[in-house]
Design a protein around this nucleic acid. Structure first.
Lengths: 346, 346
DNA sequence: CTGTTAGCGCCTTCAT
DNA sequence: ATGAAGGCGCTAACAG
């Protein structure tokens, strides 16, 4: 390691200017009781001497880190990286820093990540739950200590925690109703772990739409898997091997929907006429696949911004954090060719 | 903010156990000189009392943050989020933390991010350059202080900085040669800012392949834009309006290639027979578009892991960081239908 | 193997 | 408007 110049501290500045370190400390901030001129001199000297404040010392003293932690299932998904980008923007503008980690969809790793965040004394934590998280004991330590905890997308209902999400029930209800309007009479549904609100609510919306429209529900048409591309492929075979095939499929995520479509296309199924398709997320691939995929659009970037803003506002204003600050963001049904049956009147 | 129990410190543990704080400090680590039994007692007491180590105090004392900074152009790109995921994995396993920020392709923001990283005393910095970064003065402070700096993908050649990237020249050369083999005689090329190695090298590979195969180069066929989807759309029109249209296009990224293909398909251009296409990145969309896009695959996740590992190894072993540790990762030509002309013998 | 001591750099009363 | 002094919690000598 090369020999680096020693770090300059507020004492070095104080010495050079023949003033006290306390004054320098004040001068570096926007302290009210400080002479404008001395402040100017301090700033000049600091710049000249290459001073940089030591956040550890400052944090130690102030008992706050100016760090916000984020735990997401995966960083490399189109939706999640949008969310992260939104969070980063808001957090960065507020001069906070971001610790980011991924649970890789495993509760075990989520627990260990949470512990690391806790030990690193983040000022706040933003979480979207892993696939199989069954309880949130690992977040209790935050709640008990009054460290703000905000959930987004894959949320957990808790008195003390705001949640940012969309109305998954309604979105699923609408998209299923749309398939019914198109004439679908046997609609399959592929969803994920029902522990997660996002999937449970989508499944609930699907079922309610069937019921309200008097379309019979057949549980061979309900497939629960991990919504991966591989799972989509398998689901396609499963559905095609059914004694009576479905004439529509609503998949709880686009990635899985698209691999399912691709598998079916290989077997010469005509989409949408043999089987109509609908997905969820408005993934970039959804308007590349042919036919383009009907889906639900909701803005990850906006969700990230919103969640981060709630966190930052709380941190800055120091008000109590409550579930009542939860926000339901807008989502939108995007109708594309994959669900438009030829015979339909719509 | 709810009234939280006071933080317990090593002194509290020391008092309770009637030993010294130093011993507690040792017991909490894997200090060699520590009685197994006392260590066990310390750990037990710590757990019972709800102790958590104070990283600020520790960092202040040790003058190291255990934080690695990452600056990327965008977090929400398929490739970059793969890279980040790879970095996160390695860094997390090594018990380091990650500060992540995005330059949003702007040098100005990159400069300010770098400054924030510097002030936050990251132990190391990993960077992929913004679209328009013209010099790296903002990273000199790191180099001068011996803070390890590692570039990946969009790199900058520097004596002190390892770089992790692929052979963009060769990949572009190969993919262009492939188009020529398919019978293309007028091959257009869409690329990005030639300040960035990734684009300059791809363009160079393209040009050399033309030259080596005696295919004339025509500079109306070379388009430099920002490689966005919008730009791909515009480029399509530009190319179609040429007095003599190209019969092949090599685009320096898949996103742009695909929007370009979509625009051309709308104008009834037959791909690959009228115009063959090749992209770069093996983006998920590249095997959804029809015809599937010939492209260059290189693994973002692996690049992230590799770069992070070099950083971690350096931090742990404390050896000198040198450009000689640079690594060129493998990339692979993936041939798909978008470039397979019917008449060709291949 | 354990204890003593002395800071790391900053902020914040309290005093002037 | 500025200064003096103490301590945030931890670790690394040094001493035993």
């Amino acid at each position: 390691m090369s020999d680096q110049e020693k770090e300059v501290t507020i004492y070095d500045i104080a010495n050079k200017l023949n003033i006290s370190a306390a004054t320098v400390s004040r001068g570096l901030k926007d302290h009210p009781a400080i002479n404008k001129n001395t402040k100017k001199k301090i700033l000049a000297a600091a710049a000249e001497m290459g001073y940089r404040s030591n956040s550890f010392a400052s944090n130690l003293r102030k008992k706050s880190s100016h760090i916000i932690g984020v735990i997401v299932p995966r960083l490399n998904s189109s939706f999640m990286s949008d969310v992260i980008a939104g969070i980063e923007k808001v957090v960065n503008e507020a001069n906070y820093n971001l610790f980011i980690s991924q649970s890789l969809e495993s509760m075990k790793k989520e627990v260990s990540n949470a512990k690391a965040m806790f030990n690193n004394r983040v000022d706040g934590l933003m979480v979207s739950l892993a696939y199989d998280t069954s309880d949130i004991a690992h977040f209790e330590s935050f709640i008990n200590r009054g460290i703000p905890l905000v959930f987004f997308d894959r949320i957990y209902e808790h008195e003390k925690c705001p949640s940012i999400y969309i109305n998954n029930y309604k979105a699923a209800y609408d998209i299923t109703s749309h398939l019914i309007e198109q004439g679908c009479k046997r609609i399959a549904h592929i969803s994920g772990n029902q522990l997660r609100n996002v999937y449970a609510e989508r499944t609930r919306g699907y079922q309610q739409a069937l019921k309200d429209n008097h379309v019979p529900f057949d549980d061979t048409l309900l497939i629960i898997n991990d919504l991966s591309a591989r799972a989509g492929n398998e689901a396609a075979n499963q559905l095609l091997n059914l004694p009576v095939r479905p004439d529509g499929v609503f998949v709880a995520n686009d990635i899985c929907a698209i691999s399912c479509m691709q598998a079916m296309k290989k077997q010469d199924i005509k989409i949408p006429d043999d089987i109509a398709f609908a997905g969820f997320n408005n993934d970039p691939t959804s308007c590349v696949i042919e036919p383009n995929l009907t889906t639900i659009d909701y803005k990850g970037y906006e969700m990230g911004e919103t969640a981060a803003r709630i966190m930052i506002n709380h941190l800055v204003n120091n008000d109590d954090l409550q579930k009542t600050q939860s926000l339901i963001l807008r989502s939108e049904l995007i109708i594309r060719e994959s669900s438009l049956k030829k015979g339909s009147k719509t």
